[in-house]
Each structure stands twice: as C-alpha cells, then as structure tokens.
C-alpha cells in the first residue's frame, strides 16, 4: 500500500522530443566568448574614467549578454521546452518592471 516511486517516465506533448547533447566544442566556444566580454567590460571601465553613465549602461548590457549566453547554452534553455522559455522571459520581464517602477519614484522626486 505504501507509495513507492514508479519507474515509468512521464512524457507530455510539449516535452523535447529527443535529448540534445551540447558538444564540448560548442561549450568551450561560449566560454571563450564570456571571457572576452569580461575583458572588454573591464577595459571600458578602466580606460574611460569620466563616462560614468556610459559605463553603467554598457556594463549592464555586457553583463546581460553574458547572462543570456550562460542561460541559453550552459543551462541548455535554448533546447528546452517552449513553456520553460516563456517562463524565464516573463520572470526577467517582471523583475525589470519592478526596477523601473521603483526607479520612477526616485527619478521624479522633487
């Protein structure tokens, strides 16, 4: 009567049809790209001491690009089900709106 785990695996229509294996070459390529972006962001920051606003925006754009690469390739999202992708983008979207709405208060304070 006890509830034992069953070995039958559940498959739904939306599940990825076959297992995608990311090759070592692909992963190393992404890694090289990530390191290059890190170098770029450090250089921009060290060389342009006077462009504070410029540097914040670029730093965030570069960081987001890196994060996207990690999510899509290292975390395999690119090959995962559509439902998961939608969820991830909605969550990032919601978080962005939270930041924007809060910033709105501070930017418009008298």
């Amino acid at each position: 009567m006890s509830k034992q785990e069953n070995e039958a695996t559940r498959v739904l229509d939306d599940d990825p049809k076959e297992q995608h294996i990311t090759s070592f070459g692909n992963l190393v390529g992404i890694w090289v790209g990530l390191l290059l972006l890190t170098v770029v962001t450090v250089l921009i920051s060290v060389l342009h001491k006077n462009f504070i606003a410029f540097s914040v925006v670029t730093a965030l754009v570069i960081a987001s690009t890196k994060a996207l690469a990690v999510i899509n390739h290292f975390m395999h999202l690119k090959y995962d089900s559509r439902v998961l992708k939608v969820m991830v983008y909605i969550v990032f979207g919601v978080f962005t709106v939270l930041i924007v709405l809060t910033a709105l208060d501070y930017f418009t304070r008298a």
Binding site: T38, T41, V42, S45, V46, H48, K49, I52, S55, A59, L60, I62, A63, K66, A67, V70, I71
Partner: peptide
C-alpha cells in the same frame, strides 16, 4: 549569473 552582475556593479564603477 549572479556574479556576472555583481562584478561590474561593485568593482567597475569608474
């Protein structure tokens, strides 16, 4: 990923 954001925000303010 979290570190990817922490790094520029704390170290690279110049």
């Amino acid at each position: 990923i979290i570190w990817i954001f922490l790094f520029p925000l704390f170290y690279l303010i110049h």
